[in-house]
Design a protein around this nucleic acid. Sequence first.
DNA 1: CAACTACTTAATGTCGACATTCGACAAGGA
DNA 2: TCCTTGTCGAATGTCGACATTAAGTAGTTG
Lengths: 220, 220
Amino acid sequence: MAIVKKTYRDQIVDYVYQLLLSGELGPGDQLKENLLAEQMGISRAPIREAMQELILNGLVDYRPQVGNFIPILTAKQIVDGYTTRGVLEGYAIMETRYQFSREEVEKLETLTLQMEKNAANREHKMVVDLGGEFHDLLISKSDNLQLLEYTNRLSLKLHILFYKHWSRLYSSGEIGQRHRDIVEGLKSGVPDRIETVVRRHYAETGSKIAELQRQKPVRS
Amino acid sequence: MAIVKKTYRDQIVDYVYQLLLSGELGPGDQLKENLLAEQMGISRAPIREAMQELILNGLVDYRPQVGNFIPILTAKQIVDGYTTRGVLEGYAIMETRYQFSREEVEKLETLTLQMEKNAANREHKMVVDLGGEFHDLLISKSDNLQLLEYTNRLSLKLHILFYKHWSRLYSSGEIGQRHRDIVEGLKSGVPDRIETVVRRHYAETGSKIAELQRQKPVRS
DNA sequence: CAACTACTTAATGTCGACATTCGACAAGGA
DNA sequence: TCCTTGTCGAATGTCGACATTAAGTAGTTG
């Protein structure tokens, strides 16, 4: 395992991700270049370059001459984000539906059971990790890098911005049912079927999160 | 009409677009920060920030500690790019298929005829402009900003990188048939139909351009 | 002659300081 | 009271210089 010497820019991006995931930074907060530079012991130049990446990935709202802010998404923006994700991943999975081996399908079913179990035990972190594994396996067959690029960027954005909500998203039963539907759609081999199931899955996830957001729209 | 005072960063991005569209810059060329700074009479800082945007939009390949280069896309990358565009736009149009008025559909048909006519007269620039208008009208009904963001970015990337090929893409008859198929799919109101037609349209466009690229893979 | 090494060059990566601009707040007047 | 205006502070936008690194080149050695 090679030790890659990352440029400051990448380190800054990761650092901001951590701030967001840990809750130290939330919707509406401003990312001040001076402060970040001071905290990391570097100058503002690489920070401003890292900002561009965060802006383009939708994790930061840029207001000229004013600053960069963590976006406050409306319910519609949340739903639209997940809908778009469903469109991208639905296609990726549909197109590669025949490439899954029997072992891989069984792995998906095992992951579903594990998710159900951990959800029942309130092991939210485990549920999230297992869900990530389930998701990664599903789209792993695609070799359309352009499609995967957008998919990964959008996944990252949604993950970082809404990670905190995941623990209250679904009941154990719902999680099981949802993922079983996806696996069944995949096993059916019918193009429309799997694509529709995936789209619906993300549409409903978006609605759920938008609903949670609505319950506490502002931050402390 | 307000005069918007653009930041240097945006001006640089536009400048690079012009260099690409005019052919002064082509696949494999390096964008040297010093040179750009000198040409525009500014320092390298805003140029490096503009680079981030170009990189994230796929118009520049970044190689750490080496430089930024205009990408040389493989045939598969070209096809994948257009395929992805078909997925995004196909969904956007499918979802809004009932929102088109009679006048707007007639406008689409008029544009198709005009494209045919101009293509027959070798007025390539006009064909491109009309095609853009056709395309813009088709996706104008969507209010999913996340979807439109990816769509627009991808359109821009493909437009800028392959603009030079458009003049030899299609015969007049092909252009007419293609766009008539899309309009017919829209008029049918059948979800699968219009989405499939749009996907196929872009898949074929991608194949065509990849083929042209293959004929002259390197640049003068 | 091939391969390895040290050097050189030219580009990117980073820094600290200065210039500019937005937004808040206070003072003044209708 | 409300609106306008001027001032001020803090943040972003930009600059020029220096540090670092990758790749080519010349030289050396087997």
